[in-house]
Amino acid sequence: MRLLLGLVLLFGCVDTGVDPVELPVVASGVGPASFETRDGWTVTLERADLAFGPLYLCTAANAGDLCETAQAEMLDGVVLDLLDDEPREIGRLIGLGGVVRSVMHDYGLTWDLTGMAPRTHVDDASMGDHSFVVEGVAERGDERVVFHGAVAVEPIRPGSLVVRRSLSGTEITNLADEGTLVVAIDPRRWLDQVRFDELEDGAIEEGTQAWRAVVAGMTAQARPAITWKR
């Protein structure tokens, strides 16, 4: 029996193909410095809080319906202070080694397959049911606009996510070889095309040009940059 047990220990190990991974996810904003928009507005942000998550890493070149089974995921939702440019860990990425070609994530509002409507995914009352809460001052010559906004970016249907992007050029061949997933978010670009002079009482409200510009930046034109750090 002792011999048998020895043989089991010797040969009983199994090669399951890929390794499980658990990697830290760090995120950073851009700091409090002022910036200038395309229309010449100098914007100083006083608050830029973003709800982020969940996040899925996918093998498919295009995330979405082809990512029913993900390579790794961070299911927690967090609120990021985008005025803090120090990288900080926001969660752990749990998954399996292997190729990652695309990612998808929400901005704190998810629409589960079982849900009747999108719901907030972060536990922060100051965010309300919104993804991005921003406050600041825009100045252009004599013009000065104190603006504020709370933008909700919701999935369009149950089970879908608002950001689905391929990692062209930054895809990885084996997640198990990577160290840290770095998410860098630049809210300045989301405000770059906002016409602050058109804001009523400085409010960025749903349906306005400013709202559409911010959402376009968040979901298409200036999505969070995803890189790897070993």
Binding site: V8, F11, G12, V14, G17, C58
Partner: peptide, 20 residues
């Protein structure tokens, strides 16, 4: 395209099969 994330990799031990 239909299955970009196959459950199996080349050379791995067969799933579900107990070696002993």
């Amino acid at each position: 395209a239909d299955d970009p994330r196959p459950a199996f990799t080349k050379g791995q031990n067969l799933p579900y099969v107990p070696p002993w």
